[in-house]
């Protein structure tokens, strides 16, 4: 057996052992704080979503339309994602809607995305399977007086050492009847990653 062969023979089990040990490295799973500041990467993350939703909701609650206590009926339209990355904007508007609903100061009418389900249920209740006086009547739905829409944009700049991302989230409340914008606000976020 030459020196090279014996070295090879010794190396193979050592490599196998190293691979095995690597594979067996202990993984830890722990629960964390869902509201903590997340900085794993500088892509859009949970902290951004939470901050935007909270900031927009609190601002809207202080707007004249909502603050006068009339509990306006609102519908949520699309938030356009004009950034270069995938962002679930529906998740942002869902959070905004939930927080507004919880405040008790706004009522929500069914939005375009949920309209088909609403119509299907209304139609289903018109069949002979249901008692007429206990089923929902057609023609009683209430239209929204205001609609919420917005957009999110980003500017990304990068060199060898630094990546800078700037997000701007803009939200508006429009009067459906007269087309006037009744409220608008924006939230800016800057995240920088450096080597």
């Amino acid at each position: 057996m030459t020196f090279t062969t014996s070295l090879r023979v010794a190396l193979v089990p050592m490599l196998a052992a190293a691979l095995l040990l690597g594979g067996c490295a202990k993984e830890k799973t722990r629960y964390g704080d869902a509201k903590s500041v997340e900085t794993v990467t500088n892509q859009f993350g949970s902290t951004d979503l939470q901050m935007i939703a909270e900031s927009m909701t609190r601002s809207l609650l202080n707007s004249d339309v909502v603050a006068n206590g009339s509990r306006p009926i609102v519908t949520v339209q699309e938030v356009k994602n004009k950034t270069s990355e995938y962002i679930d904007t529906r998740s942002i508007t869902d959070s905004i809607r939930t927080e507004l609903q919880k405040s008790g100061r706004v009522r929500f009418a069914v939005d375009a995305a949920a309209m088909q389900q609403q119509v299907d249920e209304l139609k289903r209740q018109q069949s002979e399977l249901y008692e007429k006086d206990k089923s929902a009547q057609i023609g009683k739905m209430v239209g929204a007086a205001y609609r919420i829409e917005g957009n999110i944009t980003s500017i990304v700049k990068q060199n060898e050492d630094v990546k800078d991302v700037y997000y701007k989230f803009n939200l508006q409340l429009w009067n459906v009847e007269n087309g006037l914008m009744e409220w608008g606000d924006e939230k800016e976020i800057r995240k920088t990653t450096s080597k």
């Binding site: 509201k35 500041v37 902290t47 939470q50 909270e54 609190r58 609650l61 927080e99 919880k102």
Partner: peptide, 24 residues
């Protein structure tokens, strides 16, 4: 419910005012 933690950057020897609006 618990609010999200909001990060803020403070420049050296400086001040910044934050605003908190109650949700209810």
């Amino acid at each position: 419910d618990d609010e999200s933690w909001k990060p803020i950057m403070l420049y050296e020897k400086s001040s910044q005012t934050i605003i908190g609006n109650a949700p209810t």
